[in-house]
Design a binder for these strands. Structure first.
Lengths: 210, 210
DNA sequence: CGATTTAGTACCGAGTGGATACTAAGTCAA
DNA sequence: TTGACTTAGTATCCACTCGGTACTAAATCG
């Protein structure tokens, strides 16, 4: 499953299902090829079949099976989430398109489950993996970065706090370039340059979801 | 894969491998049965084959495959982590035993990967799922609870902070019973009784592992 | 009884995080 | 040209969190 930040929302890539299918759209998929390829290889291959380039981040979300069989007559699906940079076009041709997760097309039950798991997985890993940085070009403004974070997390962030935490973690490095984008004050460009890492062993958070 | 808190360490249940095998111990596993059983059903069945009771918490950690085939001639393994209460004995008979994760027996490469993923998964979910509570009997002391958390997290916690956060989250309820355990002051017994849930929408943490 | 062990609390000081408000620097339209 | 508007970035304040230290409480052991 491929996601990208699109227009202030997280979007999922769907491909048009074959005519006989119950639903009109589906997640990109394929049967596993010869067994000497890793699962990840296969995931990359599926992604490239629907996109001009490979995803910049990829992670398995798990194996899914239900009573019924998948349209393709398989009874086990191994799902991956891949993230692709902002502005990546849905494949050449008209067989694929981005849809915001909040207003998805009707999908088969198993595919719904895969989408939910994928979104949750992205949000869980976000604090530990540099996903957001890879979705942006090599240099970016802090507002860009914050926007990507907000889209991935699913809610807005406090500007000053975001920057404080960001600089405190020594993750970005200022360049001497500025970008003026329509109206408003120009923004300084930064690049991703992680430095030290303080091993903050926090306590338990007890943020229980009931 | 089954884990339990054992003697201040997290322990994994291994079963004795058949004589011809390369390694002497292995994770419990089985071939998938008829396709009308869910993956979770199968996981529970595997767990019960090695334990007197079913795990109190179960979660899939993913699908694993590598070039080589699994001893059982399968090329895809769907792995689960299950947690069982403190004090659960390894199965009747001598075919299974608990081993601390820090000093595991030699395992096949794929099984090593499964163990790592499982431990990581438990620790990631710990803040959001009531795993620790299910590993304890219905009433327990706060020291018991903290001990379980420490074992699952893998490091020590500050006593006062732990209790402050715990009470702040309204997760436990005091009973009027006290338990005296050898030497030292008796401890009050508590039960798990989650109440309100404050939707603490935190910012980003940037705890990047590089 | 005193030493020891475990449970539980109080206090303090450093650090965090969010709200508000401010300044800076650009565009746009009258 | 000037003033309204927009976006970028900073400063200050306050409430809260977290972890260290130190304390009290209540049991056992000698």
């Amino acid at each position: 499953m491929l996601v990208t930040p699109l227009d202030r929302h997280l979007a999922v890539l769907l491909v048009r299902a074959p005519d006989g299918a119950l639903e009109r759209w589906a997640l990109p998929w394929s049967l596993s090829e010869r067994s000497d390829a890793t699962l990840e290889d296969t995931a990359v291959r599926v992604a490239r079949s629907a996109l001009p380039s490979a995803p910049v981040w990829l992670e398995q979300t798990g194996a899914f099976a239900d009573g019924r069989r998948h349209p393709g007559d398989v009874d086990l699906s191994v799902a991956f989430v891949g993230a692709v940079p902002v502005g990546t076009l849905s494949a050449p041709g008209e067989d694929a398109a981005w849809f915001p997760v909040s207003e998805l097309q009707p999908l088969a039950p198993r595919q719904r489950a895969i989408v939910s798991a994928a979104v949750e997985s992205v949000r869980l890993r976000l604090d530990y993996a540099p996903v957001a940085f890879r979705l942006l070009p090599p240099t970016f403004t802090l507002s860009d970065l914050q926007r990507v974070y907000e889209i991935l997390i699913g809610h807005r962030l406090h500007k000053a706090s975001f920057r404080r935490a960001l600089h405190g973690a020594s993750l970005v490095e200022a360049t001497d370039e500025w970008r003026s984008e329509g109206r408003g004050r120009p923004a300084q460009l930064f690049r991703h340059a992680p430095k030290r890492r303080r091993a903050r062993r926090r306590g338990v958070r007890f943020d229980l979801l009931p």
